[in-house]
Simulated assay, not measured.
Amino acid sequence: MSIAVENVSFAAGNNIVVDGVSLDIDKGRILGLLGPNGSGKSSLLRIICRLRKVQSGIVRLGEDDISLIPRAALARRIALVEQQSSTDTQLTARDVVGLGRTPHRGLLSSRSADDDAAVEDALDRVDMLHKANQLWQTLSGGERQRVHIARALAQAPSELLLDEPTNHLDIQHQLEILSLVSRLGITCIVALHDLNLAAMFCDKIAILREGKLVAAGTAGVVLTETLIEDVFGVRAHVERSSVHGRFNIQYRLGQRQSALSDLPSEGGDRTRQSS
């Protein structure tokens, strides 16, 4: 296994955020981490890269207990792309991506030609090379997200953790980023809200609810109509797509959603076709 989480729990104050979760992912595979808001996805990612201290359980990278890996070695191995990150410092997109090379340099070392090449390549792979010299504060939300992913790529990790990497991105860049991640050939754990994107790009899916692991397995096993309604509170129809061959989820209007759809539109009354 590349990453193994063994009966891990974490609490913030008296609130249990991650509750006895066990899961694993093989080397070079993509694990999609799904669940409603507040289910513990982001906290679990932070636990895996040791930004949160577990109260019980073990996280392993290969055979190594993550708590015993030196910080510098861990930083060279794991890259985390978080949902939101900001700075008031006047940095260009190239400067931000260059931060990904920090674990590979000594404390007082300057950037090498290899560092510069890694930064240029990372920017190019996320379609941001043309914005390399633009100040961070002037970038759109989607552009900042792509720069953060480029920073992680420049780090050259063997394990990549992404917390909602498609947040703020248009459909084209959502597909491009996840396609890129799927071609990296490294171990990835991706927290997502979009079940269809998870079914398209993830080798394995884990579902969290209220900090507990509800199900884990392939999309065909995990993303059932019963589980989707139970965990996410929506009715759905699941079938294999004739376009890409992966499972596709089509949502139906449930009782709560139907009540909202009965509201008149701006132009007056609207007719709703029942699913």
Score class of each variant (00 low, 15 high):
Val8Trp: 02
Val8Tyr: 04
Asn15Val: 15
Ile16Trp: 08
Val18Ala: 11
Val18Leu: 08
Leu23Ser: 06
Asp26Trp: 00
Arg29Ser: 14
Ile30Cys: 03
Leu45Met: 11
Leu51His: 06
Lys53Phe: 04
Gln55Ser: 11
Ser56Pro: 00
Gly62Leu: 06
Asp65Gln: 03
Ser67Ile: 01
Ile78Tyr: 01
Ala79Val: 03
Ser85Ala: 13
Arg101Lys: 01
Pro103Ser: 01
His104Trp: 10
Ser109Pro: 00
Asp116Cys: 02
Ala118Thr: 02
Glu120Val: 10
Asp124Asn: 10
Asp124Tyr: 07
Arg125Ala: 12
Asp127Pro: 00
Lys131His: 10
Ser140Val: 05
Glu143Ile: 03
Glu143Asp: 06
Arg146Ile: 08
Ala152Asn: 09
Leu153Thr: 12
Pro157Leu: 08
Asp163Met: 04
Asp163Leu: 04
His168Lys: 08
Ile177Thr: 15
Ser182Tyr: 08
Ser182Ala: 15
Ser182Pro: 12
Ala191Trp: 04
Asp194Asn: 15
Leu195Gln: 11
Leu195His: 12
Leu195Asn: 12
Leu197Pro: 09
Ala198Gln: 11
Cys202Lys: 09
Cys202Ile: 10
Cys202Leu: 09
Arg209Cys: 09
Glu210Ser: 14
Lys212Ala: 15
Val214Cys: 13
Ala216Leu: 08
Ala219Pro: 11
Gly220Asp: 14
Leu223Lys: 09
Thr224Asn: 07
Leu227Tyr: 07
Arg235Glu: 13
Ser241Trp: 06
Asn248Gln: 14
Leu260Trp: 03
Ser265Pro: 00
Ser275Arg: 00
